[in-house]
Design a protein around this nucleic acid. Structure first.
Lengths: 188, 188
DNA sequence: TTAATATATTCTACAATGTAGAATAAAGTT
DNA sequence: AACTTTATTCTACATTGTAGAATATATTAA
């Protein structure tokens, strides 16, 4: 709350009071367009609440941001199982890129998370899609790392690009190039 | 300078006085180990100078950091021309990664630079190495983007990794996987 | 030589950031 | 009714980048 116009102490019961979910959804709303993470003060202002109120729900800012990141997992493409692996992988990658573009301020948060991150969801869906290829374990791992790190790198490039020339579909060619090179182990 | 123990105004002529180069090399020295960018105050303290003195040489911090980034170009591998393209590209990539690891706080600076960045040097050396492959233009571009963005993504993962499990040579497998997939156009 | 100007520095100060710590008031429990 | 827990606001601090003004030396012009 602002200049001494707000009551201190626990507020009287209210249906739509503050909550972790409300905070997270407000942050996502505020990131829309810019993709940048707002300051704690800016968030609290949008919620008509004192900055420190946020700390009741999240111990610190990076935990709040991890909460936001976790909430994005549902936006990742779920393989249909009906398309061939290249198409599925393309769809998976594009959906992941779309998230990274929309919330690029979360990239570091994402990479720093030890588990339950969108990256983990991506990884498990990748494995699902790619399993029919019967790649050797180390080959699948190499493929996965290459793809994931490429996507992170690309979205960083997107975020840093001030010219506006770079768009998400610039990734298309590189993805095709990558997929084309994958040697499918023909079943013996 | 610190608590009012320093003379104001232009200092009397001195051989080893402040300069853009001195500032840049001090920043590089300070980044050694952590890879993190120091604050302007921290830099100025190391140089026994007032923070604002730095602004005489660089209009703002990000221009200073661009200066640091530019100075790193010389550390990028120069193709010998004696190895095959895979080995050359591997060496080029590894040297680039080593820089990114050592100075990971500069990643954003690097990606935001419009020209004369180490990334540009990387690109031109890539072209040199890869030209014998006679790839189609769009294919070479796709390859390059894939590689560069992968390297940026990987070094971001390195920087964010708190477990310490991730090391630069984890990139080896992915690079091999990538190179193996490249279809060389056999000369007609 | 002296006056004017350019150069290189320090000092003070401000706005923005994350957040620790204490005060406070309503809700829930005994 | 007293005590405890919960959810909030307020105050305050350290850190950041850097604008603006004061100042002292170096260089150039008169």
């Amino acid at each position: 709350m602002n200049q001494s116009e707000a009551k201190r102490g626990r507020p009287s019961k209210d249906k739509d009071s503050l909550s972790a979910e409300l905070i997270i959804s407000k942050v996502k709303f505020m990131m829309d367009g810019t993709g940048k993470v707002p300051s704690m003060r800016a968030i609290s202002k949008e919620l008509n609440v004192d900055p420190m109120a946020l700390y009741y729900y999240f111990n610190n800012k990076s935990i709040l941001l991890e909460g936001v990141a976790k909430s994005l997992m549902s936006e990742i493409y779920v393989p249909s199982g009906k398309l061939d692996w290249k198409q599925e992988l393309k769809k998976l990658s594009i959906s992941y890129l779309a998230i990274l573009k929309k919330y690029d301020g979360l990239l570091e948060t994402l990479l720093s998370m030890s588990s339950n991150s969108p990256a983990d969801v991506f990884i498990s869906r990748f494995s699902l899609i790619v399993s029919p290829l019967k790649l050797r374990n180390d080959q699948e791992k190499a493929f996965l790392d290459l793809l994931v790190d490429y996507l992170h790198g690309f979205s960083m490039a997107l975020a840093c690009d001030s010219t506006g020339e770079l768009t998400p579909d610039c990734a298309d060619n590189s993805l095709d190039f990558l997929f084309k090179g994958v040697r499918v182990r023909t079943t013996t």
